[in-house]
């Protein structure tokens, strides 16, 4: 079963002339963005610029002021999106297995416990299936959240700074695992860390300005997970930092 992780039909995402506002102020105005099917796109930008709002709009949790969000097959994304946030977002009264199968229960389907168990094994938590979140470390909780995201088996995955609250070592490990396990899905990963974007993104987009605009997609060479300390990556990282920094001084 090991690699029944991949989805059947890859799907890309199209944002067209999208306008979003928050509390009356425009966050983005008439922007376009394409997420390639089966690729990880990292969206890099400073805090408060509207990355999370954009992610929520793509998830269908809030309605954009104008513009279109759709799959590259021209149909809406509803029901084809999985989510992973900075906070693991686990139900504290439900054990790890119950949290992984949450989506099934919410849709009124019988949970596929075998698959959930296998996913927990894939994220290194085979022994923790019956444990409650309170007994798990921050890294383990985030692994459960990753397993839950994979259990959803959706072609599009939205990730809102999923590794930001972890210690450096755990983050490094989990980034590599996530890159491997999410292969085949269109992933939009929001982060404020250039190193993380370069490590995980097939493409990196910088979001800056107010209302924010997207930079040209940067496509670092090689497949993720990459080593951000390599000289070539270090140069790209300097470039990204400069792009972010330019926004700060502007």
């Amino acid at each position: 079963m090991q690699d029944r992780v991949a989805v059947a039909t890859p799907l890309g995402v199209r944002l067209r002339a999208l306008t979003l506002s928050y509390g009356g102020a425009a966050l983005i105005r008439e922007v376009d963005l394409d997420l390639a099917p089966g690729r990880i796109t990292c969206l890099l930008g400073p805090s408060g610029i509207g990355k999370s709002t954009l992610l929520k709009a793509i998830a269908g949790l809030l309605t954009p002021d104008a513009g279109r969000i759709e799959g590259d097959d021209g149909r809406p994304l509803a029901g084809r999106v999985a989510w992973m946030g900075q906070d693991a977002g686990l139900l504290p009264w439900s054990d790890a297995l119950g949290n992984v199968t949450l989506g099934s229960r919410l849709r009124g389907e019988p949970p596929d416990r075998e698959r959930a168990q296998a996913l927990l094994r894939l994220v290194g938590l085979a022994e923790a299936a019956a444990m409650l979140p309170a007994k798990l470390s921050g890294g383990m909780r985030q692994r459960v959240a990753l397993a839950r995201t994979l259990y959803e088996d959706k072609p599009v995955v939205l990730m809102d700074e999923p590794f930001a609250a972890l210690d450096a070592l755990t983050r490094h490990r989990l980034q590599a695992e996530a890159a491997r396990l999410l292969a085949g899905r269109a992933v939009l990963l929001v982060t404020h860390d250039p190193a993380e974007a370069l490590r995980l993104g097939h493409a990196v987009v910088v979001m800056r300005g107010a209302p924010a605009e997207f930079s040209q997609q940067l496509t670092p060479p090689g497949d993720p997970p990459r080593d951000p300390t390599e000289p070539a990556m270090a140069a790209l990282q300097r470039r990204l930092l400069a792009e972010l920094g330019a926004e700060v001084t502007a």
């Binding site: 269908g60 949790l61 989510w83 946030g85 977002g89 139900l91 949450l102 919410l106 849709r107």
Partner: peptide
């Protein structure tokens, strides 16, 4: 109730009743 969890429940298609029974009530 935790906003993030409410969002997650909505995203995964939970109706009002399931959200109440499995999230807001506990």
């Amino acid at each position: 109730t935790d906003r993030n969890l409410l969002d997650l429940f909505r995203l995964y298609g939970a109706g009002r009743f399931r959200t109440l029974a499995w999230l807001r009530f506990p």
